[in-house]
Amino acid sequence: MTHIRGEVLIRRPVEEVFDFVADQRNEPTYNPDMVFSERVSTGPIGVGSRFRAAVGSGRRPVEMRIEYTAFDRPHLIASTTTMAAAEFSGTLTFKSTPAGTVLRWSWQVRPKGALRLMGPVFGPIGSRREQRTWARLRDHLEAAAKPPLRPGPVPTRFRRAATSHPPAA
């Protein structure tokens, strides 16, 4: 078994970050490896919510099943993800800070079949991929939160230049 852990600061309120992450269908917007994600359970998102997703890997997408095993809004999501080659279980925790939200992940990876021999490689590769994915989430949420640019007053030097030319006939 391999452990993958990390954290990222997202300069957005904890409830916003939690709700966006909790809806697994949002992941393709910040994870370029994810081909699709759909919800296969009904009712509000929480313990027992299930999703079907796929990530690009080689020539064809690799399907995965995700199920939430614990859910405490806006602090914790625990889940299991089952793929043909491995099983992942772990948690995402969300902590409110004056600067925004600290998102921490902790995963246990159990490779299956012949991939068990590659267990030591899963840690470093998985850590880099997770860090990249959650940094993209941060960038996505922080960029979406920026107010739209509003036209401001025209600087004086440009106003003079505009009025110094005679109007066109």
Rank of each mutant, 00 (worst) to 15 (best):
R60I: 11
S89T: 02
F88H: 03
A99I: 00
A99Q: 15
A161W: 07
P167W: 03
E27I: 10
N31F: 00
E87L: 01
M1Y: 00
V154I: 15
R52V: 09
R128F: 10
F51M: 11
K112Q: 11
P28L: 06
G100P: 03
M118Q: 04
T97P: 07
G90P: 04
R128C: 09
F20V: 02
G46I: 14
P28C: 07
M118Y: 01
G90H: 09
R5P: 07
I125V: 14
A54Q: 11
P111A: 09
A78I: 05
R11C: 10
V62P: 08
T69S: 12
T91F: 02
S96Y: 00
T156Y: 03
T156L: 08
T133D: 03
F36I: 15
V62C: 08
V121R: 10
V102L: 13
R11V: 04
E142D: 04
P120Y: 14
A168H: 07
S49M: 08
F51K: 07
R159H: 02
L103T: 04
E27D: 05
R52C: 00
V55Q: 07
R12E: 10
K146N: 07
E38G: 15
S127E: 11
R52M: 04
R110A: 06
H3D: 04
A144M: 12
T97L: 10
Q108R: 09
W134S: 06
T101H: 11
S49Y: 06
E67N: 00
H3C: 04
V109I: 14
E38D: 12
S164P: 00
E67K: 01
H75K: 13
P111N: 11
A85I: 14
T156P: 03
V154P: 04
T163C: 01
A53N: 13
G90D: 05
H3K: 12
A161N: 05
